[in-house]
């Protein structure tokens, strides 16, 4: 066990209805790192997010969060250590401000009915930080996909956790919003020392932003390391079964993956 790991997984097996989706001998996310989990559809990326956040049971193995066995953490303690931004955000008629304030739930005594002005101030700070302060009185279901993701990040930051787990935060977003959200994640990582575990489909965004990649294949980490180590044509072709070409890209050590179709 390494106390410097924000998340540490050992011999984890979990899945749905008798079938194992994940079988991870070992996976480490060092504290204050920016790690991406990539992999094909159905390789277990979202299941990984769900098991780390404790919402699905596991068949075997252990997960340590900040060095502590997660079975010894209460739900609330876990929510104070790790905040999750989910892929599908189904929020109804509540305003951005109310939504962001929900990030204080794990810090409150379970039966306290009204938010304090200190809590409102924390929420406000995070709507400013994520750049959605102007929208704070609007209902969540009237926001664009990008604004909704930013609100979700503001809510996660309001939880004031050391670890941020982002599940496909850039899915269905345009390039400008993709950059805006990942720039924000990187800034939080560098300036606030927040550990970011990013689950992402887009290999090039993963390569450009993250220091460390984990390539999942059929529920197990197949290749791990720096973008240049993981994103080789052989690796990508063997996991995805698609022909690709690897280009150097604008930043050293951060290659770009170009899919090659039939020509």
């Amino acid at each position: 066990m390494n106390p410097e790991n924000a998340i540490e997984i050992n011999n984890l097996r979990c899945g749905y209805g008798g079938r194992d989706v994940l079988d991870i001998p070992r996976l480490e996310v060092p504290a204050r790192s920016f790690v991406a989990v990539i992999g094909p559809n159905g390789s277990g990326k979202t299941t990984l997010a769900r098991v780390i956040s404790g919402v699905i049971p596991r068949r075997a193995g252990s997960i340590r969060i900040n060095g502590r066995e997660d079975s010894s953490l209460t739900r609330r303690a876990r929510a104070r250590a790790l905040a999750v931004v989910n892929q599908n955000l189904e929020v109804g008629q509540i305003t951005v401000e109310e939504y962001v304030l929900m990030g204080r739930i794990p810090h409150r005594p379970p039966v306290r009915f009204f938010e304090t002005s200190a809590e409102v101030a924390i929420a406000r700070e995070n709507t400013r930080l994520t750049g959605i302060d102007a929208a704070r009185h609007r209902p969540m279901n009237q926001l664009s996909g990008g604004e909704r993701q930013l609100a979700a990040i503001a809510r996660a930051l309001t939880q004031e956790t050391g670890i941020l787990l982002l599940d496909e935060p850039t899915a269905h977003l345009d390039i400008a919003h993709q950059v805006r959200i990942l720039d924000l994640a990187r800034r939080l990582n560098r300036e606030k020392g927040i550990t970011v575990l990013l689950i992402i489909h887009d290999l090039n965004l993963a390569s450009s932003y993250c220091d460390h990649l984990v390539l999942l294949d059929h529920g197990a980490p197949r290749f791990t390391g720096s973008p240049a180590e993981v994103l080789t044509a052989d690796h990508v072709e063997s996991v995805y079964g698609a022909r690709v070409s690897i280009l150097p890209g604008p930043y050293p050590g951060r290659p770009l993956v170009i899919p090659l179709g039939d020509r």
């Binding site: 919402v55 929510a79 104070r80 999750v84 989910n86 739930i105 939880q159």
Partner: peptide, 16 residues
């Protein structure tokens, strides 16, 4: 109030 976000997100906020 937390379950308005869905059961799983509410659980991720520490609600039993």
């Amino acid at each position: 109030n937390a379950t308005r976000l869905g059961m799983e997100p509410a659980a991720q906020l520490g609600v039993n």
